[in-house]
Design a protein around this nucleic acid. Sequence first.
DNA 1: ATGAAAGCGCTAACAC
DNA 2: GTGTTAGCGCTTTCAT
Lengths: 377, 377
Amino acid sequence: MRPVTNMTKKRRTRSRPLPGLVTAAQVAERAGVSKMTVSRVVNGSKRVTDETRRAVKTAIKELGFVPSQLARRLTGRRLGVVALLVPDLANPFFTQVIHGCEDVMRDAGFTILLGNSGEAPHREKSFLETVGALQVDGVILGATGDAATAAVQRLQRAGIAVVLIDRSVADVDADLVVGAAVTPAYLLTQHLLGHGHRRIAMVGGSPEASTSRDRIRGYRDALRDHGIEPDERLIMGGAFTREVGKTTGAALLVAPDRPTAIVAANSLLAFGVIDAALDLDLRVAKDLAVVSFDDVEVTAGRPFLTCADQPAEEVGRIAAVRLLKRLNGDESPAETIVLDTQVRIRASCGCDPGGRSTDPSAAFGENPATGSQLAGE
Amino acid sequence: MRPVTNMTKKRRTRSRPLPGLVTAAQVAERAGVSKMTVSRVVNGSKRVTDETRRAVKTAIKELGFVPSQLARRLTGRRLGVVALLVPDLANPFFTQVIHGCEDVMRDAGFTILLGNSGEAPHREKSFLETVGALQVDGVILGATGDAATAAVQRLQRAGIAVVLIDRSVADVDADLVVGAAVTPAYLLTQHLLGHGHRRIAMVGGSPEASTSRDRIRGYRDALRDHGIEPDERLIMGGAFTREVGKTTGAALLVAPDRPTAIVAANSLLAFGVIDAALDLDLRVAKDLAVVSFDDVEVTAGRPFLTCADQPAEEVGRIAAVRLLKRLNGDESPAETIVLDTQVRIRASCGCDPGGRSTDPSAAFGENPATGSQLAGE
DNA sequence: ATGAAAGCGCTAACAC
DNA sequence: GTGTTAGCGCTTTCAT
């Protein structure tokens, strides 16, 4: 190797280019123009001759050139990507939220990168850091709880717009889109009181989640307003999962003075509670009233669960619209948007509005013999 | 320590830096070192004094510096991100696959970016292009079908590793991880034949999907091997959704010579079929046998559906492991890995293994009166 | 209308 | 051990 003067422009490769990557320079060479012109064509600048434009476009097609969004973003442009982190992908509520977000974002030309924290704060933190380091344009966050504070603040400081959904985060100044929680919980509880129940338990979900706290508050308020002092032993916490619903449900139901009704903070918990009731040969609606948040069609058959139905897709849509506004420079103060939550009275609370549309058990061709045989075992 | 010439280094800002972004240069200045040293500390190089390292780390903490993965990737390093695209987030099978992937990828230090194509080829294409332009390190793809060919080939040409799950893609040379399809479908059908059924329909899902085609093949083979020529009118296609299950199920069941048993290509379709049966006052298991792919616990109560249970999480895990191997330079020929699929005989096929653990209807405290009243309406 | 140079934030290679 | 230089692929500014 001999020391040569800088005759040749390109001497050594300092950085490793990705093999096989087609760059604007290659397109430029092929089209006989400069990188700049390629950039102009890609970005639809007017200041290019039709002829040149055609030539460049041809070269782009032939080489299969896709502009590196990385490099693009590095120069201050948008990535065209927003991240959406939810605490539990297996929770149908969030699946619907995702749907709503996707609809809006897709129409706006953004790609959504989904993340699942699985209710684990450290995974949440890791995801938020990753998308921050990726410099996505914005983040929609269904937080695990207040543990997200630092990570969210860092994102905001880095100029990344954040919109919260479903749960608030302490000390974070950001838009928040949620379904109503306190009032529906109140109404649900009140409905059970109307049925004559006096020992009503609450399976409340994760105390970290603001939604959980709000729902428990509504439940408490309703009891107090009807002259019943909430019994703390009847208020259970835990993750928003079917398993937790089952274990806490079981714990409640084996007690000598077991509750005659249970309010579940979400549908997964409700199903777990029902699992537990079954194990104890309790009949839902008759021996144990169950009401819940979130309306989820998971049973084969007809809707059965009396519930507070949050407008999940709407939550996603509105959050997305909000984020788009922020991305377009809206600097108005952060708002909390509370969406109306519909209470749907069905059969699981002990009501029987009549008609066949209330009981999912009918789905399986239950006949009296089998029914009692199985239930009585 | 402050040469005057430095002052003039920065004259104009050509590109717009992201406001609020902390860069390595800032950290360097604060720690009184060069960018390079910061880079070394961040990447854990040995060639740094403990003292310097401490100083830099302090500065990083104080400023809240997070290295831009974008810029990093641009220099040829890894992004630490892989994309996972599934055709339907609402399908519990894929939720479980995601879980499996996440476990493995997280342990390997990668973040997963999820995408949902919703079975729409154009959304699939758009997502693959986006993650390609983002230059993620790898992609795990549950394709919508052969429409993905071009996009996948482009990714591979750009040096991005691709592993397919659940469905093959025409003309793509990549690892594929799937659950067995033909044999389980055969066994499921055979089981129904054993019950004496002769008119067995297939609600087969999307013909675009290789899994769908395989499952239909197993069904056909079983019929033929038992001397029954498949009746094409009994083989229905459509998306893998509950809605499609319901409409096609209804179409099949209103026919004068309706089938007495139905094989559903996945659990969503099975639930739709059950919905349809209910509408027609048919009792599942008794009036209509239903078997299905995928074992999903969505009913409140006990497992009821006779099904072919694919090891969903395992599919995700193995695909992830495979991808990691590729990322680490494994160039061995692409393989197709077929995982064993377990057939679980339960009650919906007409079997009653005995005990209460077979019928979910028991969950709702069915009593004879209510049961017949509702079912008879 | 098109191009050259500079710079985004980072790291590989090469000094010292 | 640490700093300097060049360059990743793109876009902005300024010149032609």
